[in-house]
Amino acid sequence: MKPLFIVLEGIDKAGKSTQAELLKTYLINQGNSAIISSEPTDGVIGKLIREAMQSQSISIKKQAKFDEQMAYLFAADRHYHLYNDVDGVYKLIQQDNSHVIATRYYFSSLAYNCNNQEEFDFVYGLNQRFPNPDLVIYIDIALDVALFRLYNYSYLEVYETEEKLKQVRENYHKIFQNYDGEMLKLDGQNTIESIQQEIITYLEKNFI
Rank of each mutant, 00 (worst) to 15 (best):
F148G: 10
V136C: 07
Q94C: 09
S59E: 14
I141E: 06
I139Y: 07
L126V: 01
I200A: 06
R104D: 06
Y83T: 07
T191L: 01
I139T: 09
N116L: 12
S98V: 03
Q69N: 13
G43N: 03
N116Q: 13
C114Y: 07
T201F: 06
G15P: 10
N29L: 06
P3N: 09
I49H: 08
L143I: 15
R169W: 03
G15N: 11
N32F: 07
F207Y: 11
V145D: 10
P40K: 08
I137H: 13
N29K: 12
I6R: 04
K24W: 08
I195W: 02
D12E: 14
Y179N: 08
Q69D: 00
G181N: 04
D180L: 03
M70E: 03
K164M: 12
V136L: 00
R169V: 01
I199V: 08
N116E: 14
L73N: 04
L73I: 05
R78W: 03
L147I: 15
V136R: 00
R169I: 10
M70P: 09
I199L: 03
Q94R: 15
K16R: 15
P40E: 02
Q63G: 04
N152G: 12
K16W: 11
E39Q: 14
I58R: 10
I192W: 03
T191C: 02
E118K: 15
E162P: 09
K13S: 11
D96L: 09
A34R: 01
Q177D: 12
D96K: 15
H81Q: 05
F107V: 04
E198G: 03
I11H: 01
Y138L: 13
Y105R: 07
K166C: 07
Q63A: 13
I139W: 06
Y112V: 07
K185H: 10
L27M: 05
I11E: 00
F130H: 04
Q19A: 14
I49W: 08
Y159W: 13
E163T: 14
F148D: 15
T161P: 01
V136K: 02
S33I: 02
E204G: 07
T25E: 14
L156T: 11
A146G: 14
P3M: 00
S194D: 15
Y83N: 13
R169N: 11
N29F: 05
L23H: 10
V89T: 06
Y72K: 09
S33D: 01
G88H: 04
